[in-house]
Computed example of a mutant assay.
Amino acid sequence: MAIPVVLITGFLGSGKTTLLNHLLWDPEMGDTAVIINEFGDVAIDHLLVESAIENAVVLQSGCICCTVRGDLVDTLDDLCAKVARGELPPFSRIAIETTGLADPASLVRTFLTERLLADRFTLRAVVTTVDAVNGAVQLDEFEEARHQAALADVIVLTKSDLASPEAVASLTARLKEANPSAAIVPVVHGAIAPDTLFALVPAHPSRADDEVLAWLNSEAFEETDGHAHSHHDSSIKPFAVTLDRPVTREALRSWLRSILSLRGADLLRMKGIVALKGEAAPIVVHAVQNALYPPVQLAAWPSDDHTTRIVFITRDIAPEALRNSLEVLASRSAA
């Protein structure tokens, strides 16, 4: 069974380290491998190291902690090899902390396109920390901060006790406009239980998954209808499109290839449930930029609504362009 991976990202000073420190202390993280950029960023000394072996340490809580040594693929392969040799305890989950300037899309692509990773690991969620005090300015000035928020499954609003209630409410509304489907949770001193954090995002649907509607959360996108109220984020648009006609597999495959090839860099995220012509059950599609998750055929529709619903978060792509391309897709299928 593939090991779930959680990416923890967030802009410089947004509280990733504080969040990670809090998680590492929790016994619920005992079967977790944590990959960080530098030990200096996380105060390992006071987390009570129990044992150490070549670039990895086992903390008193049971967590395995290591640094990225060169390539992420090599680091993960090294961890798995040490477990196989009995040098480290087994783990059932991985948390990866990125640098403050990292675009999480590149790591998402790594897990989808690197065969060595795709066979053994599954990307469970992107968790982004946003500083309640400085977050609005960072979103204004840095594209990386906007991308981190747009790609998040969960946004952890840190330092919420240091900002005014009005500032927290304004920033929360702005984040919701940029990424309607993300769960937004305020924390103080990074204090959130691992089970609480990881329960905030439904897993990517499996064949028999009845949580697909929660995962898709298309209603949240329909409320925005592509109209971001903040002029600062005008290039990033969330919106939903629907089709009341089924499409053929061939037409869907051609459409996905086309948009990922032509506009993949600006397709920050796409999730959808698609009605297939001549088939009783739908297919689930999911992409981050030009990396496509393996499509999943569901065993049955999750509700009585058999409409195709696809949600997008895009950069400088007009909603009408994708809506029109879907109409062409449906027309080809009808023909």
Rank of each mutant, 00 (worst) to 15 (best):
A214S: 00
D103P: 07
I259Q: 13
A118G: 09
V187W: 14
S218G: 06
L101C: 02
M29A: 15
L88W: 00
R245I: 02
D131N: 04
R315W: 06
D77F: 08
A178Y: 09
R245E: 12
E222P: 09
D195L: 14
R315P: 08
A132M: 07
V130E: 02
E166K: 06
E143L: 14
R323I: 12
M270I: 10
D74L: 10
S170I: 11
H232M: 15
D131V: 03
S92D: 11
E219A: 05
A220E: 04
G62P: 00
W255Q: 07
N55M: 02
Q297C: 13
R120H: 11
T99H: 02
P202A: 02
R263F: 08
L260I: 05
V49T: 15
W25A: 15
D41Q: 13
D74G: 00
V212D: 00
L216P: 10
E219G: 06
H231W: 15
V185L: 11
I53G: 00
H22Q: 13
S254G: 00
F312M: 12
C63K: 03
I184V: 12
P27C: 02
D195H: 13
I273G: 09
I96V: 12
V288T: 05
I44F: 05
L262N: 09
A183W: 09
T122C: 07
D304S: 10
E222M: 01
D77M: 00
E143M: 14
V168K: 04
A173G: 12
E38P: 03
T172A: 10
F111E: 00
A191F: 01
A220P: 02
S14E: 03
L216D: 03
E327I: 12
E219Y: 03
E327K: 13
R269D: 13
A291Y: 08
I35T: 08
I273C: 02
V73R: 12
V241C: 10
T224A: 12
G272S: 06
A299M: 09
P282V: 03
G86I: 02
A52S: 15
V126N: 12
D31K: 15
L88E: 05
G10W: 04
G264Y: 09
G13Q: 02
V137W: 08
V188T: 15
Q289P: 01
R124Q: 14
G70V: 04
L322W: 08
A167N: 05
R124E: 15
L200I: 03
L117K: 06
A2C: 00
P194F: 05
V108A: 10
